[in-house]
Design a protein around this nucleic acid. Structure first.
Lengths: 113, 113
DNA sequence: CCGAGTGTTCGACCAGAATCATACACTCAA
DNA sequence: TTGAGTGTATGATTCTGGTCGAACACTCGG
């Protein structure tokens, strides 16, 4: 009857509405996180697990980056078994910071990477 | 006849078009620089000298912040006697990063400062 | 009840950025 | 030519943030 009880602590999210501008800018001003956001943008919601991203850092750092993205209101996470699925908060984040996400996702002419 | 020769090295600028996205975001993701940009926005071009800004840092740090802003294509400087006048590169920067400057200048509901 | 897979937490380390105090360079006016 | 005003450069210090390795927690399938 009841939904499956969560034995694992749910990740703490911050809604974009409550995110300071400096936090949002800092979150995006990192090459690894920018790459995560961009890669996430190419996929459907709840499609990607944390470990499925092609970034040159270890598990620990990756986990930390996702925590930063959650705190900045950029990413939402949901537990699915042992994995954790991700979703880019496009609409909410864009409502709080109009145009910023578009800017981050647009290919950068000055960044050949 | 000739224009007054520059005895002082002219500050090195970077046009917004040549600024990587990460550089622009990092430049704005700092409380002091954000304040400089905002304060500069309230004034006419070439109106403010470097020392005329109300920020809680010493001269050296302030000079460094202006160098960062120049490198990010956000600010242009011109020598005027012993002083150095500043101008916010609104149009050029907005053309390169549409909406970003507006976002930085908009009052932040989550930042009571 | 294990064991593999996934992600987090902890501690430490390191690189880069921000800051300061000091010294320096330049410009203008007296 | 001197002095006040303005900004930069240098070196040292401090602090923040990104990173890793290892240990831990949780889930699911055998």
């Amino acid at each position: 009857m009841t939904a499956p009880r969560a034995h694992r602590a749910a990740p703490d999210h911050t809604h974009p509405d409550h995110v300071p501008l400096l936090t949002a800018l800092s979150a995006l001003a990192d090459p690894v996180r920018l790459r995560l956001v961009r890669e996430l943008d190419g996929c459907a919601d709840w499609e990607r697990t944390c470990g499925s991203f092609d970034v040159p850092v270890g598990k620990a750092a990756l986990s930390h980056h996702f925590a930063t993205l959650r705190a900045a209101g950029l990413v939402e996470q949901r537990d699915a078994g042992p994995k954790r699925l991700n979703r880019l908060r496009r609409a909410e984040f864009d409502a709080r910071f109009p145009g910023l996400l578009d800017l981050a996702l647009r290919p950068d002419p000055q960044q050949p990477a």
